[in-house]
Design a protein around this nucleic acid. Structure first.
Length: 448
RNA sequence: GAGGUUGUAGCUCAGCAGGUUAGAGCGUCGGAUUGUGGUUCCGAAGGUCGGGGGUUCGAGCCCCCUCUUCCUCCCCA
């Protein structure tokens, strides 16, 4: 028997970690609810047909597939098996997969329940997703996303509201961030202005790396992707003027690009009326999520720390279309809870109060006083005090040490004299003050 | 998925061209202290040296495979 282990890229969460994670989830959920989003949960596994083809070729590779139950090989594609063609074999031996994000399952849900939903439908969802990526810092194979999406409206004020949600949530978490915004039509506008609309994808992938590899790196990659020198020069010129108004003349011949600029301007107009705490900036190099985004796109970066994006989102004009219901435009954002956790931990931003679990520990000397303490514990819990009783009566030193290690703020001694008086000797572990009180008085004091 | 990297006590790490019973600090447990904690002192427990195979008289150390960690690419939260 070998030592037990857990799969690559997964983690256990101890009591302290769960408390901290819940702090993030609760914060985000509260903000979502305040903006009128309703909770939704979907299964960990989806039919593979729901998931494949939604995230691009890369995404399909990163999907976890679930092997069919039973004698799955009896129904396997003989030819694919003989040819060792894994890709072709999959559909015949796996019909389900683990969810890769929350947006596609949401779209699937909307389509299945379109008859009963009233639009625009706003939902939030906090659940784990799985990706067969190679794990790294801030990158896990199982991680939680906290999504808020609204489907069934093209109103740009939702883009502004989602930016406000980011702003408010990170303000609550005391984590300074930069919210980046761009528009896929603006990206398309660049390609159009450079006369390489057919190479739009290649251009976007390259341009996205500007802050990482610099302009020379981008030029090199554009060139490698078969884009002409003159087009590259145009692109460079556009990238060098990443100001909304200065882009308008450049996009004179790109109606799509102008449309994108207009939409971003409108979002900014809404936001100007109610300034955000965190910085929001237009970033013309921001690409992300090419699979289904069509309008505004967002990304959130934590300030002052090296970590990938901790949030992202955007508008997808027709995600439900692939499930047979076209014409429903949606927009949504996602919080990467695990990365936010890592950042908060590294910057020491979790509140102290999270470590406090039980408020009171009862300790005793012998069987009679233990029985008395047990009764007191029952009474105190009824009065709303989270109480624990030390299981082995006897040496006080040991029991006090337990309280100290567990960081329990109050200890109450149940001894002979206390038993006689119907009281407990309550000690404040922080300042050492001690007083003899009835359980009722103690509850009153600790609940205050 | 490609390349690199890491793995010794619960935790952080030592370890000698390959040479007998693998060490330290912290933590844990017991005692000094039989109604009072995070200090001090004393003592103890705890290791298939990630796992499997190989080379060797002999492997924690060398070779192969595998798992895991972190990193770069890809991509993303």
């Amino acid at each position: 028997m070998s030592k037990p282990s857990i799969p690559e890229g997964t983690r256990d969460f101890g009591p302290e970690q769960v408390r901290k994670r819940n702090y993030i989830f609760d914060t985000v959920r509260t903000v979502f609810a305040k903006f009128g989003f309703q909770p939704l949960e979907t299964p960990a596994m989806e039919n593979l047909s729901t998931l494949t083809g939604k995230y691009g070729d890369e995404g399909d590779k990163l999907l976890f597939k679930i092997l069919n139950n039973g004698d799955y090989l009896s129904k396997a594609d003989e030819q694919a098996l003989a040819n060792r063609d894994s890709n072709k074999l999959i559909s015949s031996i796996a019909k389900r997969g683990l969810r890769y994000d929350l947006t596609v399952p949401f779209a699937r849900y909307v389509v299945m329940n379109r008859g009963t939903l009233s639009f625009p439908f706003k939902r939030y969802q906090v659940q784990p997703v799985w990706r067969a990526d190679r794990p790294q810092r801030g990158r896990y194979r199982e991680f939680f996303q906290c999504d808020a999406d609204v489907i069934g409206s093209e109103s740009l004020h939702y883009e502004a509201e989602l930016a406000q949600i980011y702003d408010e949530a990170f303000q609550e978490l005391k984590l300074p961030v930069t919210i980046k915004i761009n528009h896929r039509k603006v990206l398309f506008g660049i390609a159009e202005a450079a006369g390489i609309a057919d190479k739009f994808m290649d251009m976007t992938v390259a341009v996205d790396k500007l802050d990482k590899v610099g302009i020379e790196g981008v030029r090199k990659e554009l060139s490698e992707r078969g884009i002409s020198e003159s087009a590259i020069d145009t692109i460079e010129k556009i990238l060098a003027s990443p100001d909304l108004s200065s882009l308008k003349p450049v996009f004179a011949n790109s109606p799509t690009g102008l449309e994108g600029l207009d939409e971003i301007e409108k979002v900014f107009k809404y936001l100007n009326a109610a300034p955000l705490t965190n910085e929001i900036q237009f970033d013309i190099t921001l690409a992300r999520g090419l699979s289904y985004y069509t309008g505004c796109i967002f990304e959130v970066i934590a300030s002052g720390i090296k970590m990938g994006s901790i949030g992202g989102g955007g508008r997808y004009a027709d995600l439900t279309g692939v499930f047979g219901v076209p014409g429903l435009s949606g927009v949504g954002i996602s919080f990467g809870a695990d990365r936010i956790y890592d950042v908060l931990e590294e910057l020491n931003l979790f509140p102290e109060s999270l470590s406090e679990s039980v408020k009171l520990l009862l300790i005793s000397f012998d069987e009679p006083s233990f029985e008395y303490a047990f009764q007191c514990a029952t009474k105190l819990r009824k009065l709303g005090v989270s109480t624990e009783i030390y299981p082995d009566p006897g040496k006080l030193k040991k029991q006090f040490e337990y309280a100290a290690k567990r960081q329990i703020p109050f200890v109450a001694i149940a001894g002979e004299s206390e038993m006689a008086n119907g009281t407990l000797n309550l000690k404040n572990q922080e300042n050492g003050e001690q007083q003899e009180l009835t359980p009722e008085k103690i509850a009153e004091l600790l609940n205050a």
